[in-house]
Amino acid sequence: MDVAHSDRLKSFFKGVAFSEQQEAFFLKPWKVYTFSQSELITQAGNIERRFYVVVAGVQALYLLNKNGEKVVLGFSYPGSPSGVFDSFIDQKPSDTFLEALKPTILLGISRSDYLSLFENHPDFHKWGHLFFREILFGRLFREVELLTLSAKERYVTFMNRCPEELKVIPQKYLASYLNMKPETFSRLRRSVQY
């Protein structure tokens, strides 16, 4: 693994202190996975095999409603985690798709190797506590925003918060994530300053 990738991983798992030997153990199981634009990383109905950290590209996590339309649950981008985490942990078929919206490079680790990190290094439990707290708070904020903000407020809040990489993905994905029609998103993009 090259230095940039190992630095990316160490930065993602900040708070975990490694000895030289531990760092080698930690880095060994990670592999580089590349996906082209529009490629499905994980399919609904398949089991998620890996936990990912994003090196490059933007990915969308979505499920299909009863009409078969995509409902976007979230995005991943450089520096963030990626994958279908519930399927990864439970090893049950995923209800969601993970798609590369841009050419993508991911660092991935298998479930058994992921679990062995926790078994062999107590600091990962501390990292896990902080990681899951961050995920939970993120989901709670999003739920509150969806339930309490108008379409315009959701748009402004999201555009102020989201990384630049997300602003160039197809509008239909952003519109779905913000629970609005693509036409509404397009109108807001033209008329609202943020």
Binding site: Q43, A44, G45, L64, G68, K70, P93, F97
Partner: peptide, 18 residues
Amino acid sequence: LVITPEHQIQRLNQILNK
């Protein structure tokens, strides 16, 4: 009837799992 490959992939995976 508007169809998409994602909907088909999901249903086909269900069949393959079954």
